[in-house]
């Protein structure tokens, strides 16, 4: 499986839970969404060996009119 986050890519040869993947990247679940194709994954979902997954950071520093 391949997991992309910002400029980092991590690969695992075994299926893994999203929760453990976030932990491996040191991420807070409140600050990301986990995307596989056109769906989102919850922390309990499994990522399979053939999957490609992307983690999107959702915390932003600026807002319109801030």
């Amino acid at each position: 499986m391949q997991v992309k986050f910002d400029n980092q890519v991590k690969e695992w040869q075994k299926r893994k839970r999203v929760k453990d993947i976030l932990e491996a990247f040191g991420l807070n679940r409140e600050e990301v969404i986990v995307v596989r194709d056109d769906t989102l994954l919850t922390e309990n979902d499994w990522v399979e060996v053939d999957d490609k997954v992307e983690i999107w950071r959702v915390v932003s520093g600026g807002a319109p009119g801030d």
């Binding site: 807070n28 409140e30 600050e31 915390v59 932003s60 520093g61 600026g62």
Partner: peptide, 18 residues
């Protein structure tokens, strides 16, 4: 992200609150 947001102090506040 806006290139200036890395220095935005309230990003730190967001991390703390999260």
């Amino acid at each position: 992200e806006c290139p200036y947001s890395r220095d935005a102090s309230f990003l730190r506040m967001k991390h703390l609150l999260n």
